[in-house]
Design a protein around this nucleic acid. Structure first.
Length: 867
RNA sequence: GGGUGAUUAGCUCAGUUGGCUAGAGCGUCUCGUUUACACCGAGAGGGUCGGGGGUUCGAGUCCCUCAUCACCCACCA
């Protein structure tokens, strides 16, 4: 087959992926009688490009899918993309703004049309990039959160929840982003520390502090702590007159324990319309609420002469007015304050009261396994009762902590891109349904769209519904669920694999929605990975381009396999993954090693004859292969990706390449060599699918029509344990001879030995240890030493010996120490009584063998000394 | 303020119910081109597992405590 000297990934990867697709290698078959294994891919944002975070989850999930295929499963990995409402909307608005266009100028319909065009072009990019990673996804089942079928499901679920009383409409404080003119969920708000001025004003007999004078126009309540002695003379609900921004106001004293008497003056005024805490206080005491700031971020008419001003511009002017009135007491600079911003788009959040749609998480109206529960309770039960296992376990604590503080989920967003609410209004009537009531008409649809995560929360099962059934509106959602074969076969999915950063956004909400609609959990296990960081543990940031690992350019330069291996090397569950260029080079080299093993083997491949064990080395490599396969599977069964790779790495380099391949230059057992090579490709395939398939295709030419991707683990070959052990001894002898040569700086050493272990494997020993075996020379000028019970004579000069003698003495010291330790342990009665029998046995064995080893060392020392 | 992690070789990190003399990759040093591979081979050096205490026959691993560093949640006039 004539392979190049090095593996050039970019020459092969695209063709190999095509080959897989052409052969439907990733196509799931629900009618197969194999066991089924399924994963729903976290759908990337359709307008995104592949970043290293995507690369990580694609790698992990692909490994598991391919691994299960090899284990004989029918696998399904459902790919998809997300319409990512808010971030896409932001992108489009930004693009329009660049052309000087405001979305209101073009209207909703045109805006959606523009967005669709943009998204349509973009979606293919991310799909191509997913393929470049080698992802074994079933493209015939590609889904999109905003396609017609899924959109129908989203509406159906909303209607169902509404009819069950789990969705309600209410006035609430929301996180309003005046820039994008939408509210965002609590989870989408991020706080940035900022130093601003803290003003203290006179308010009647009180002094109150504020960072936001511009919200104070409507203030007419002073809240103090009931235990605060300074204010004991004022009664709860007592009124007083105060000079304020727009003249005199009649203010009321409120006493509430939520006020911290140690903060500032211990007295504060409240602005219920623009603060959650104040809103809750106002609700508690039925206080008036008044809007001060408009949804465009500008002051309303209550601000009189400041009406229409942007709040930040108005602030100093308002302070000046209060100062002129003699109401300003003090200004504190550099007051540390957290400013709330929208993490998509970055607008500064202004709390506002608005009518919004919410999911009630506390209403007990759901039947889960025979009990009447609230969403909150079900979310707790599924973990507690073991229906879903979270790996690593530490995230269960975080999960419970979040659920304990769970608030109603605000579903409505005021952006245009997304699933429009299936809610209709006429006069003051509200109707919730997919289509408006069929009466005289005149119903108007709610303009809001749903939170992106609402559709995402249906992902595991909505993607498995039969698209043909979804267009049949005579069927109910329950009918479709009952009749969809994929859903019946692949749901609950076996695993959800995703980043820990979206455990609340997504994982919890999938559990919420799925248990409610489908009456089963969305997945059995959740495996959470961390973020991908630089080697220094820093976030990759655009401001520091050197640290950025761009998966696409890495794939181009080093290949997807090298990238995949780098991502799992050293990865610990739930911990951040660290990647750097050096790591990628190491793993590219690993691929090249495999490549060159193939170059050596290519003309020796023999699959016609039955592989048989003949030599010690044969038994040894088969024993190691079996063990490796076993350990590899155990590691992957426990999501120990890093461990699995290390096992393969060790076998491929330290055992197969360094020893067996070298040995096979002397002892030619090509059928067995071919067998092990074949197993090696199967073993490595889930981790590095491209190169292994390339080599499989080249090696199997004419011998097999099959693709590597379609193989399964084969029956292992039995071997003789003593023979395997014998080769271990040979390795130790060769290593020791190499060591002596290095230590004594020798180049052409001759040895002699009568041991059959040596004489029967003389050519192997000669080649690998770089020595000459000479059993005819006289015993003079020999240094005898014993390695693992085998007596070896070395022909070497006297004056070289002392170096090695020191080595031996150091070795002797270590051995004595160890023997003492083991002795002490075995003399300890508590140890003998408490430690498990096999551990005690091991210690005894160890002591025995160590004593033998010590004796050999001492013999060598004596011989060398005598010499 | 509440929570969760991390601290192991010069660097980056593994180490899964406590049990062989604590591992890997990179880097360092020495030697080497032998019928695949310099994207290579052979060998070496390097760690009192952050400090202190405790439980245990036995602790990198469990508990307490301190220190340092991350991250998440909440959010204050």
């Amino acid at each position: 087959m004539n392979l190049d000297k090095t593996y050039q990934a970019n020459l092969y990867e695209k063709d190999i992926y095509e080959l897989w697709i052409k052969n439907n290698a990733f196509r799931a078959d629900p009618h197969s009688n194999k066991p089924h294994y399924s994963i729903a891919m976290p759908p990337p944002n359709e307008t995104g490009t592949l970043h290293v975070g995507h690369a990580l989850f694609l790698t992990l999930q692909d490994i598991l899918i391919r691994y299960h295929k090899l284990k004989g499963y029918d696998t399904l990995w459902v790919p998809g993309t997300d319409h990512a409402a808010l971030s896409t909307n932001t992108v489009i608005e930004k693009k329009l703004a660049e052309q000087g266009i405001n979305k209101h100028q073009i209207g909703r319909e045109k805006f959606i049309k523009i967005t669709k065009e943009f998204v349509g072009n973009s979606r293919n990019t991310i799909i191509k990039q997913i393929k470049a990673m080698g992802s074994a996804t079933d493209w015939s089942r590609l889904r999109y959160t905003l396609d017609d079928g899924l959109s129908r499901v989203v509406s159906e679920v909303f209607v169902k929840m509404y009819n069950d009383g789990l969705i309600y409409r209410g006035n609430r404080i929301v996180n309003w982003d005046p820039k994008l003119e939408t509210n965002v969920s609590d989870d989408e708000v991020i706080y940035k520390p900022e130093k601003i001025k803290l003003y203290t004003f006179k308010f009647g007999p009180f002094e109150i502090s504020t960072t936001r004078p511009e919200t104070k126009f409507g203030d007419k309540y002073v809240v103090v702590n009931p235990k605060d002695k300074r204010y004991a003379k004022y009664k709860h609900l007592q009124t007083f007159e105060a000079e304020w921004l727009n003249g005199k106001v009649l203010a009321t004293v409120i006493k509430d324990a939520s006020v911290d008497p140690n903060f500032g003056t211990g007295a504060m005024t409240i602005t219920p319309w623009h603060s959650l805490v104040d809103f809750e206080l106002a609700n508690k005491y039925s206080l008036d609420m008044e809007q001060i700031i408009g949804f465009d971020g500008k002051l309303l008419s209550i601000a009189k002469e400041f009406e229409g001003l942007d709040i930040l511009k108005a602030r100093p002017k308002i302070v000046k007015k209060l100062k002129d009135k003699g109401l300003l007491i003090s200004v504190q600079d550099n007051y540390e304050h957290n400013i709330a911003t929208n993490f998509r788009g970055g607008g500064i959040i202004e709390p506002q009261i608005r009518l919004q749609w919410f999911i009630d998480v506390n209403k007990k109206a759901i039947n889960w396994k025979g009990q009447n529960n609230s969403f909150k309770e079900i979310l707790q039960r599924v973990i507690r009762e073991g229906d879903i296992k979270i790996i690593p376990k530490k995230f269960e604590k975080i999960y419970f902590n979040w659920i304990d503080n769970l608030k109603d989920w605000c579903l409505s967003r005021q952006i245009w891109w997304g699933h429009q609410l299936p809610v209709w209004y006429k006069d003051d009537k509200i109707y919730v349904g997919i289509t408006p009531p069929k009466d005289e008409g005149g119903w108007k649809r709610d303009q809001d769209t749903l939170d992106t995560w609402f559709s995402s929360s249906l992902w595991t099962w909505s993607t498995l519904l039969d698209p043909k059934l979804l267009v049949d509106y005579k069927l109910t959602l329950d009918d479709i669920i009952a009749q969809s074969i994929d859903l019946k076969t692949y749901h609950p999915t076996n695993l959800l694999e995703t980043g820990f950063d979206i455990i609340f956004f997504w994982v919890a909400r999938m559990i919420l929605a799925t248990t409610y609609v489908v009456k089963e959990v969305p997945f059995r296990e959740v495996f959470l990975h961390g973020l991908v960081k630089t080697e220094g543990g820093k976030k990759m940031s655009k401001s520091d381009p050197d640290t950025i690992i761009d998966p696409l350019s890495i794939i181009e330069e080093f290949g997807a396999d090298a990238l995949r291996l780098s991502l799992i090397q050293g990865l610990a569950p739930g911990q951040d993954a660290k990647v750097a260029k050096t790591k990628i080079i190491t793993n590219r080299n690993f691929c090249n090693k495999l490549w060159n093993i193939s170059r050596f083997i290519e003309d020796k491949l023999d699959f016609d004859r039955k592989p048989e064990i003949k030599s010690f080395a044969d038994a040894w490599i088969i024993g190691n292969l079996n063990e490796t396969l076993n350990n590899f599977q155990k590691a992957l069964d426990n999501y120990q990706f890093s461990e699995a790779y290390q096992i393969v790495y060790h076998f491929l380099r330290d055992q197969f390449a360094d020893w067996y391949v070298e040995v096979s230059k002397e002892e030619k057992n090509y059928p067995l060599l071919s067998y092990v090579y074949k197993q090696l490709l199967i073993l490595t395939h889930p981790l590095a699918p491209f190169i292994t398939e390339v080599l499989w295709q080249k090696s199997m030419k004419g011998k097999s029509q099959d693709l590597l991707v379609n193989q399964s683990y084969q029956k292992i070959i039995d071997y003789n344990k003593t023979n395997r052990h014998n080769f271990d001894t040979i390795i130790k002898i060769i290593t020791e001879i190499r060591h002596i040569q290095k230590e004594l700086n020798l180049s052409a050493l001759s040895i002699c030995s009568k041991s059959s272990l040596i004489t029967r494997n003389s050519r192997v020993v000669e080649r690998l240890a770089q020595v000459k075996l000479n059993n005819t020379a006289s015993d003079n000028n020999q240094v005898k030493l014993t390695i693992n019970g085998v007596s070896i004579g070395l022909f070497l000069a006297k004056d070289l010996v002392s170096n090695y003698l020191n080595k031996l003495k150091a070795k002797q010291q270590k051995q004595i120490q160890l023997i003492n330790t083991l002795n002490k342990r075995l003399l300890n009665k508590s140890y003998l009584n408490n430690a498990p029998a096999h551990i005690v046995n091991e210690t005894k064995q160890k002591l025995l063998s160590e004593r033998v080893a010590l004796k050999m060392t001492q013999d060598d020392i004596r011989l060398f000394s005598d010499f």
